[in-house]
């Protein structure tokens, strides 16, 4: 049993090492991506733009639920006017970056892994190498950077739509004062503490999810089972990484140590 445990530990460290080397090469592809922005834009479309619908609908409902729940609790204390603050702060600080990252991992991360894994399984990557085209620069790097660019934008859309959803329920249906909703929000939320920290979070999440997704695809076994496992791993590891990193980042940003 100890032997197994040791082997598993060694394997995961080895994989982390391979992943880091891979990340290094991918980051080196930034010059090639910069030289051919068309490739990046095409990937931003398939990674980011096609995820907008999912993000918008989810954000709307999360915001509406927040409005409803928040109102019930706040009205017990007679503090309905602070509903705007509550909705906006929870979205911008936490739910926006985290929930959109989880959705992003499920929608775009899994697609990236499956695409790259299948290209590997059908020898397309190998064929490219033999045509003297580096697949890491041509295929992986544009997808990776598209993910990094898209994630903060998607999180911003999520939060914005969520706030509108909270407004719809709180002001439109439950009768919170419109002016109070917005002015309290404006007065309380801080640009640096709240908005910028949220953007930093989603940038980190985008980086990590894209890294996991492209690496799992590139590292997958070139069989149908291998690709399916890699896709599962992308979603599971991304979700894990997002939640753990969220705690760490929150502790760094808002914790008083």
């Amino acid at each position: 049993m100890f032997q197994r445990l040791g082997e598993a530990t060694l394997n995961s460290f080895e994989k982390l090492g391979r992943g880091s080397c891979f990340l290094w090469f991918t980051l080196g592809g930034i010059f090639d991506v910069a030289a051919r922005p068309g490739l990046l834009i095409a990937q931003i479309y398939s990674v980011g733009v096609l995820t907008v619908m999912l993000i918008t609908v989810s954000g709307m409902f999360v915001g509406m639920v927040l409005g409803l729940q928040g109102y019930t609790i706040l009205s017990d204390f007679g503090a309905e006017e602070t509903l705007g603050v509550m909705v906006a702060a929870s979205l911008v600080r936490e739910l926006g970056p985290v929930v959109s990252a989880l959705l992003f991992a499920g929608r775009a991360g899994s697609a990236l892994t499956a695409e790259i894994g299948l290209m590997k399984a059908t020898e397309q990557l190998s064929g490219m190498e033999m045509m003297a085209v580096d697949p890491v620069k041509r295929i992986v790097a544009p997808r990776f950077f598209a993910g990094v660019v898209s994630m903060p934008l998607l999180a911003a859309i999520f939060s914005t739509v969520g706030i509108l959803g909270g407004h719809l329920v709180g002001v439109g249906m439950l009768g919170v004062d419109d002016g109070a909703f917005w002015s309290q929000m404006q007065a309380t939320l801080d640009y640096r503490d709240d908005i910028l920290n949220g953007v930093v979070k989603s940038l980190v999440f985008g980086f990590v999810i894209s890294w996991i997704a492209v690496f799992e695809g590139y590292d997958s076994l070139p069989t149908s089972e291998g690709v399916s496992r890699a896709t599962t791993r992308t979603v599971v590891h991304s979700a894990f990484a997002v939640l753990v990193l969220d705690f760490l980042l929150t502790a760094l940003m808002f914790g008083d140590f």
Partner: peptide, 10 residues
């Protein structure tokens, strides 16, 4: 190089 599968970009 001609791969057995062709390895065309799908």
């Amino acid at each position: 190089m001609l791969f057995q599968s062709g390895a065309l970009l799908t």
